[in-house]
Amino acid sequence: MAANFWASSHCKQLLDPDDVDVLQPLDRERGLTQEEFKLIKIHMTNHIWKLAQQVKVRQRVIATAVTYFRRVYTRKSMTEYDPRLVAPTCLYLASKAEESTVQARLLVFYIKKMCSDEKYRFEIKDILEMEMKLLEALDYYLIVFHPYRALLQLLQDAGMTDLTHFAWGLVNDTYKMDLILIYPPYMIALACIYIASVLKDKETTAWFEELRVDMNVVKNISIEILDFYDYYKGDTCKGEPVKGIPEERINAALNKLATK
């Protein structure tokens, strides 16, 4: 919301890559592995996404919710903050912060419709209680900037608006990683444009040069994104099906936390 990203709390809170994706001691004691930690975060990102589809909120709300979710686990353990409750609560809080409020009872209703697993089902009071804990865990910093607006402006500037759909999808997928906690949103947008242009054989060298951005950062982000695709998904660009994450693995990981 702030007019200026550089003056925003989001900017000041960007984290060092080493401080993100770090297993909390409590979770490690429970035997959670780094890999499982990552998987749960991806899985719960998808959970937020699916839930959002049901309650119908704007994309921006989802992106903010996922950002809250990932930010929480740079500070709090999954043992104490059950991801299955934190995820819908993030969506609830984000809907307020982004001015398109979703009633708690609607969320509860759709969760029950969507999930047969008892462990995902919560009551209104659980969400409201978690909301307070969440606000505190986020230190009341609720403004989040996203790459979407920058993406559109940059594509316009580069005269590559035909890449919009492809690049937009890539940006969506970056929320399955912690990139939004580490890099300024416009750099993430640039990385997605870079990937899109390479895959679609667009000549962009001159345009990138003119931007005078640190191409090393752009390329590093791009590599992270591509590595993520290699590892977790089929190459959607080549029409391969998404491999996804086997449910047993997620459940095994979540069972270690044994929160509910």
Partner: peptide
């Protein structure tokens, strides 16, 4: 608010 009018990339056009 919103994104590009007219929807987003296939499969990601939630909300």
């Amino acid at each position: 608010t919103g994104g590009p009018r007219g929807g987003s990339a296939a499969g990601y056009g939630v909300g």
